[in-house]
Amino acid sequence: MRFGIDLGGTKIELIALDAAGRAVLRRRVATPQGDYEGTLAAIKALVTSAEAELAVAATLGFGTPGALSTATGRIKNANSTCLNDKPLKDNLEALLQREIRIANDANCFVLSEAADGAAAGSSVVFGMILGTGVGGGIVVNGQILEGANRIAGEWGHNPLPQPEAIDLPLPSCYCGRAGCVETYLSGPGLSADHARQTGTPLSAAEIVSLAEGGDGACAQATLERYERRLARSLAGVINLIDPDVIVLGGGLSNVARLYDNVPRLWHEWVFSDAVATKLVPPRHGDSSGVRGAAWLWPA
């Protein structure tokens, strides 16, 4: 039995997969906000309860924000800041009394979709999360590509390519830089762009609803800017790793128009006479991350 645990900013989710990859149990609890020790305790309680219910001792894979530093072995780059500079892997192994495997949550997402999801059977897959933040991951021949610094696929903190007049001034990012892809393409980034251009604060969901309902020219314009920025950013990914499939995740992956409009636009910046890369929604929805954490252990 394989357990996957997704350590999110608002919830901790556990899934149990059998040998065939079928989910046999799912549990979810709220993440103790800003409380590292409380987070460890919540994880232990989830695992202990699930193993008792299923009468198994499972392998454990964890998806987390950020990544393990190659220099210190501690978590770095997590937007759940209470995890940063903490020896999470060591603490969990001591607490749970076994080896665990841990990977960035975007890597877990793309591993799930490459294993038995929307990109199953593809050689090179790029997966990205368009949610509160923007993350990315790469799977090649069924294996996560982590990179020398364990930041492969972290395109959210690349600068937006070829900023246009409407993109200026470059928004500040929590990472200390300005003009990161994340500041434009995350849910909060979409909302902030709409407010800058219209003076009206709306959530990303409200903007999408207005545009799709044909009830807002301003909302429509905001989504058109978003699509153009996403197309430019993904063109850079295609030029660099030439993936067979790009899978979208996160709340904005539910915007159906992206799958038609963005591939139509990205031709302008892709260095090829034709683009065979497919842009697809996730098969497993918001379960992909936790499923991918379980897939860190082979069947």
Rank of each mutant, 00 (worst) to 15 (best):
residue 2 R to H: 09
residue 10 T to G: 06
residue 12 I to S: 03
residue 18 D to I: 13
residue 20 A to L: 07
residue 21 G to E: 04
residue 22 R to I: 02
residue 35 D to M: 10
residue 35 D to G: 08
residue 39 T to H: 04
residue 45 A to Q: 12
residue 47 V to G: 08
residue 49 S to I: 11
residue 49 S to G: 01
residue 49 S to Q: 11
residue 51 E to S: 12
residue 51 E to C: 14
residue 52 A to I: 06
residue 52 A to L: 09
residue 52 A to H: 11
residue 53 E to A: 14
residue 54 L to S: 04
residue 55 A to D: 14
residue 59 T to W: 05
residue 65 P to T: 02
residue 67 A to F: 11
residue 69 S to I: 07
residue 80 S to E: 01
residue 81 T to C: 06
residue 83 L to F: 14
residue 84 N to A: 12
residue 86 K to I: 03
residue 87 P to D: 00
residue 87 P to N: 06
residue 89 K to Y: 00
residue 91 N to W: 07
residue 93 E to L: 12
residue 99 E to L: 11
residue 101 R to G: 06
residue 104 N to G: 07
residue 105 D to E: 12
residue 108 C to Y: 14
residue 112 S to V: 10
residue 127 G to Q: 02
residue 130 L to V: 12
residue 131 G to C: 05
residue 133 G to H: 09
residue 136 G to R: 13
residue 145 L to N: 05
residue 148 A to W: 00
residue 152 A to N: 07
residue 156 G to N: 13
residue 159 P to A: 13
residue 166 I to N: 04
residue 173 C to W: 05
residue 175 C to V: 11
residue 176 G to Q: 11
residue 178 A to K: 15
residue 181 V to C: 12
residue 181 V to Y: 00
residue 184 Y to D: 09
residue 186 S to D: 06
residue 192 A to Y: 03
residue 192 A to M: 05
residue 193 D to F: 13
residue 195 A to Y: 07
residue 196 R to T: 07
residue 197 Q to N: 12
residue 204 A to K: 13
residue 213 G to F: 13
residue 214 G to C: 05
residue 217 A to C: 04
residue 221 A to P: 11
residue 223 L to C: 11
residue 225 R to E: 00
residue 228 R to D: 14
residue 230 L to K: 09
residue 230 L to V: 07
residue 231 A to S: 09
residue 236 G to D: 07
residue 241 I to C: 01
residue 244 D to E: 14
residue 246 I to E: 00
residue 247 V to H: 02
residue 251 G to R: 08
residue 263 P to E: 00
residue 270 V to R: 01
residue 273 D to S: 15
residue 276 A to Y: 00
residue 282 P to Y: 06
residue 282 P to E: 05
residue 284 H to K: 02
residue 285 G to F: 04
residue 290 V to P: 02
residue 296 L to W: 03
